[in-house]
Nucleic acid binder design. Structure first.
Lengths: 190, 190
DNA sequence: TATTTAGGTAAACACACGTTTACATATCGA
DNA sequence: TCGATATGTAAACGTGTGTTTACCTAAATA
């Protein structure tokens, strides 16, 4: 009761509302626990709906995962960047959490352990993140720059969320945060 | 037949040899498929032994995973480093594969999706890698440097092994390799 | 209001997988 | 040689989990 912000049960029957509730709950739990350790019942319990509705409305857990990714992967973020403040902007908008904006990378990374989910995540990662960033970086060594972005993002998020070693006792250590920002900035400058 | 280098069946009964065969097969498959997608039967089939022997000799899949990590995590590599050639040495000995030496990081990273396996991997990662590296780095910002090492290693290996995007068509692109080496070198220099 | 249909539910199903059990047999000491 | 023990095996077991089924009921339609 005190733990989660579970959705209240639908009193009136409304398929669209139910679908949205499932999507929202799924996004939350996939982010938190990863694809493999997230059960369909975890999602439907949180959404306050019946377990069968995941298969009915989305065609199964895997398709639901794909639907969550499609919903969350918003590439417009690339257009909001500028090379002057790339490091700061990326860190604020893409790596650290921002209220109102969902960071898709943790969900994507939560799929690497499952071969089927990974295939889906990989396709979206390529089309919605890697390619747009490559294009945005422009000509010289664009793919290498995009790879550097992916490597640092992936490494940092995995380290922070899955491998809580020092210096992550409470939050990101200032010196590490500073390094991160410089790393991202260097991608567009070096 | 043509695919794997499966162990031949033990003709003579020898518990030690069997244990070794299981460890060797487990190391191979854990590295290749990760903890979650590796089945006990996958391991025992490759080792050419009965499936029950994993539980009998190691106490279960999780304990076997721990035994593989214990066997593979060799910290002596830290003592072989020097700050002059840190980037080159780390890249050669710790990131890229070296014949005869097993890189423990992919096995460790293959456990992040499973909460129980992750706990084991995290403990060993801390004790056998993070702390030794921190100590080796020495005084100033040692933990931040160790974190940078972890982030870049983790990001690169995840990217290369789990998310094969460009520029990884065949092997590591030279410009990316060059960047990686410089990143590692900068950890001890900046 | 009577009928149909879409939305929702509980239970059962199917399958995968780690583990345990009961049994077989090679090895070795007395 | 002859038990005793260690080693190995096949089969069954228990459980977790995604999915399907059969059924129920509120909402919509005429």
């Amino acid at each position: 009761m005190a733990t989660g912000a579970a959705e209240p049960k639908n009193k009136t029957r409304d398929a669209d509302r139910t679908r949205e509730a499932i999507l929202k709950a799924a996004q939350h739990i996939f982010t938190k626990k990863g694809f493999v350790e997230t059960g369909v019942r975890d999602i439907t319990d949180r959404a306050g709906v019946n377990q069968a509705l995941v298969s009915r409305y989305f065609g199964g857990k895997l398709k639901l995962f794909e639907a969550v990714l499609e919903k969350v992967l918003d590439v417009r973020i690339v257009t909001e960047l500028d090379k002057e403040n790339f490091g700061k902007l990326v860190l604020a908008n893409f790596i650290l959490s921002t209220p109102g904006r969902v960071n898709p990378l943790p969900i994507l990374l939560g799929a690497v352990a499952d071969s089927k989910a990974r295939r889906i995540a990989l396709r979206l990662l390529h089309d919605r993140i890697f390619v747009p960033f490559s294009v945005w970086f422009g000509s010289e060594e664009a793919e290498t720059r995009a790879a550097r972005f992916m490597i640092i993002s992936t490494g940092f998020l995995t380290y922070r969320d899955q491998l809580p070693l020092p210096p992550f006792a409470d939050e990101v250590h200032p010196s590490l945060r500073q390094w991160l920002e410089a790393e991202f900035q260097a991608i567009v400058e070096d």
